[in-house]
Design a protein around this nucleic acid. Structure first.
Lengths: 348, 348
DNA sequence: CCTAATATTGCATTCGAATGCAATTTATGA
DNA sequence: TCATAAATTGCATTCGAATGCAATATTAGG
């Protein structure tokens, strides 16, 4: 070692400017294109070259500029995720799963939250300029919006949404099947007097749950089931029950709620305001299988959406649409998993 | 109108390729630079020119490519948001607020969720290539990480985190003040026998809440207060209470929990497993003021974090750091707002 | 009506990485 | 050993918008 001078450590760009491939090239005494190739997996580069470039890159702390790369490759490696109700307890889990899976696949997530579903227009205006490679939307888009995606060749996957009569890829939980599981169990337990507390009328999923419930009840010979409610909130469940009880006619046997949070609100109203305790005096079922559904105070009978599978499906569908634009549209429907708790008398 | 032929609508690029400023320039018969200038607010452009270009842009459906713009301006108009526990009920609200405010300010959000706090390294590697204009971090970064931000001149704002002895901008809720409010109210109500159910030991906020509580209790002459628990989950609250009761020595007067969800778990354990009902037999307080805190089954006494103000502060701090890189670091601490409920005997 | 000052416009270059093509080097086989 | 095929490398251009500077058009002033 003696006599061999230690190579002077080059200060990694004091100027504050990020290191570029040209800097690395100069430092390694090669061309910029060589640097580019060394970082590309399958490229034709000699061992010696790769070693030299990698050393230089390492030494300077080189990190390729994703923006410049996107410009020339026409691939931003970005996808947009549109979510309308982040405050709906169900979505944080979905979002966390989605971003984690995307990260693992080397794709970054641009997040857009819509406070009103109608905001879709403005949000899409913000999405287009970034030339995202694809979009996962858990927000209500119109057929015109979907057509816009087609026109721009931007892959789109709906999450728990879809549009009747429009060909779009989507991942959904089988609402109808889930509702059937719930109702059948309630029916077998002997319940005959039902009430539905519905979600917002502009939510496809909510409407579908309501409709499916009405249909199944009708099949079982139960008609004119009252429908109350109008959103996914605790208050909706709580107030709807109070209304119901105020209307007279006594409590129903079972209440089918738009989702878990509504069911929780309903349970609280029954217990606190009317002294009715589940499952002894009343049966209440929810939908989604969010965390609080298993809290002891509620212990809901509900349908858990298989979030992991669903997000996995959404991401992999989107990625393959990105790789292979001619991929046919596909709709993947997952059955929910029944969770039985003490919020309802129930026979599986 | 008769006789005036309707101008033939130019098909907006059938080729599928997005319209560029060159397309617009050609269509309007001007130079590309003119197009660029027309879209820039304060630029020197004649009325006639602007009108022509705007018409052409409109007609072709031109949308500037944000990626190309970012490359030349060295401004991506992207910020990264790092969040570690999206499933912590408190964060969805924060995230929704943050993205909405950023959107309003014309900045897009790249979302990164960390499942383990230790993932920071990998995540930062993913952040740098996009040349984000700034970062809001609600995740534990080390001093070395912070130094890296400094070196790269990337503005950073911590949200509910900070590092002792390191100069960083941050927005926090005043944990100490909040804990004091809670404890003082409990003390005035006559409680003397306390237990703390703490959060994860690697959460600065959690540790601070615990430490602040111990200190305040000591000031009030109460020492050797038992500390249980180790994370922010419902189960932590639930199991800790069971442990506590199993240990004998009877129930405490009051339980100070790391956050609302822990408090909820604790309340459930007391009621379901030990027949103790708040506020009659036991007092339990939480922290954060999440939605379920106000559900009738729990009705927590807790400290609500002023999320709107805090997110507003975080975003505006970050934006001004981006505009003015020499901006001094600043720490903004907001007092939480007391919410009193029936989970505790409490005197304000 | 002419000149000087001012406002518009276009030209040419830049940002940083990727890539087709040609030039060069290396490996192969006879 | 030499010709030829194969592997490497560099050159030059590209992606799409922004911008300094020079060229041109417009306006004002006398």
């Amino acid at each position: 070692m003696a006599g061999k001078t230690r190579p002077e450590k080059v200060v990694p760009i004091t100027s504050g400017r990020p290191v570029t491939s040209y800097d690395v090239a100069r430092h390694a005494g090669v061309s910029q294109s060589a640097v580019s190739r060394c970082l590309k997996p399958g490229a034709s580069v000699s061992k010696k070259m790769r070693a030299r470039v990698m050393a230089a890159a390492e030494e300077l702390g080189y990190e390729p500029n994703a923006i410049a790369r996107s410009l020339i490759t026409r691939r931003s490696n970005l996808i947009a995720v549109l979510i309308s109700n982040l405050t709906n307890l169900y979505y944080p889990e979905v979002l966390a799963e989605l971003t984690q899976r995307c990260s693992a696949a080397g794709v970054r997530v641009l997040l857009f939250t819509l406070s009103r579903e109608a905001e879709a227009n403005e949000v899409l205006q913000q999405v287009w300029p970034y030339r995202v490679d694809g979009v996962i939307a858990s927000a209500q888009l119109s057929p015109a919006h979907v057509a816009e995606f087609e026109k721009r060749n931007v892959p789109l996957v709906f999450y728990n949404r879809y549009l009747n009569g429009v060909s779009v890829s989507s991942v959904c939980c089988d609402q109808e099947d889930g509702v059937r599981q719930l109702i059948d169990g309630l029916y077998k337990a002997g319940h005959r007097k039902y009430v539905i507390i519905a979600g917002p009328p502009d939510s496809v999923v909510g409407v579908e749950r309501k409709t499916a419930a009405l249909e199944r009840l009708e099949e079982l010979g139960l008609e004119d089931v009252p429908v109350l409610g109008e959103d996914y909130s605790y208050e909706n469940g709580f107030n709807s029950v109070n209304e119901l009880m105020a209307a007279g006619g006594g409590p129903p046997d079972a209440v089918i709620c738009a989702n878990d949070v509504v069911a929780i609100g309903a349970l609280d109203a029954f217990r606190v305001n009317h002294g009715l305790v589940a499952p002894r005096d009343i049966s209440v079922v929810g939908f989604d299988g969010v965390g609080p559904a298993s809290w002891k105070s509620y212990d809901l009978t509900t349908i858990r959406q298989p979030v992991r599978r669903m997000t996995e499906a959404a991401v992999s569908m989107l990625l393959s649409m990105i790789e292979e634009p001619e991929m046919p549209r596909e709709k993947r429907v997952f059955s929910g998993i029944l969770r039985t708790g003490s919020s309802a008398k129930f026979v599986e």
